[in-house]
Design a protein around this nucleic acid. Structure first.
Lengths: 121, 121
DNA sequence: ATAATTGTATTAAGTAAATAATGCTATAGA
DNA sequence: TCTATAGCATTATTTACTTAATACAATTAT
């Protein structure tokens, strides 16, 4: 069950993105209790401290809420979750367009490049 | 003249990509002598050691060639350079499509999302 | 009541990346 | 010839990330 991580980004940061995705995709539902720090650490194949760091940051983003001794829960704030759903692909597209323009491809040619790539693969 | 770097990737790795881009875009022409390690370090606003590391890796990729005491030069191999020009946008598109599918957007909807984003911005 | 589990905190150690400071060898150019 | 400059090497320090090993307080479950 241990996840795979890229080496170009801190593991805790990658975990943050993964949990964000779980919430956005509904794998974690609003109000749902998520596994304990220790269990998540095992599930992701990382040290509990690394997992703790990721979860703490997710709390600062109001995506999770820690109940001192009963566990950690996904936010009930559906606005926040709806925001996530839109924010994630938006960020991906934004950085994609920047990267493409950065390598000399003009905006109106980007679509063609994508279509051609899809056709070829 | 000091460049800006993201914090989620080693600086030397980001420099590699930047120099690759310079070669692909023709800012650095085939056979051209590029600035010394020390000068490039100043230009990029990093430590000479960091620049050295990036340049050494670029040599392993056969994009640069070090002439022991006269300087460092861009490869004359136009095939390698042509390869770069195609490889860079290809990699960008590939990881973009992966990211989009990863967040639940199907291939045939990706183009629409991009078009909508462009229209909105 | 008591044991197990929760989040949280602390201290230590190892690693990689970046910076700093310095020195070497070889050669191009004055 | 001699100086400046080239790439390259070495050693040390700092910081961030990760892992490791515990420990504690509070609450849930038995």
């Amino acid at each position: 069950m241990s996840k795979t991580f890229s080496n170009n980004m801190p593991i805790y940061a990658q975990i943050i993105d993964m949990v964000k995705l779980s919430i956005a995709l509904g794998t974690y539902t609003p109000g749902q209790k998520i596994p304990s720090v220790r269990d998540l650490a095992i599930e992701y194949g990382v040290n509990p401290n690394t997992m703790q760091k990721a979860l703490t940051k997710l709390e600062e983003l109001h995506l999770l809420r820690a109940e001192r001794t009963s566990g950690r829960f996904v936010t009930l704030d559906t606005d926040v979750i709806e925001g996530l759903k839109k924010e994630i692909p938006k960020k991906i597209i934004k950085s994609f367009l920047q990267d493409m323009e950065n390598c000399g491809i003009k905006t109106d040619q980007i679509i063609e490049h994508v279509q051609q790539y899809i056709a070829e693969n």
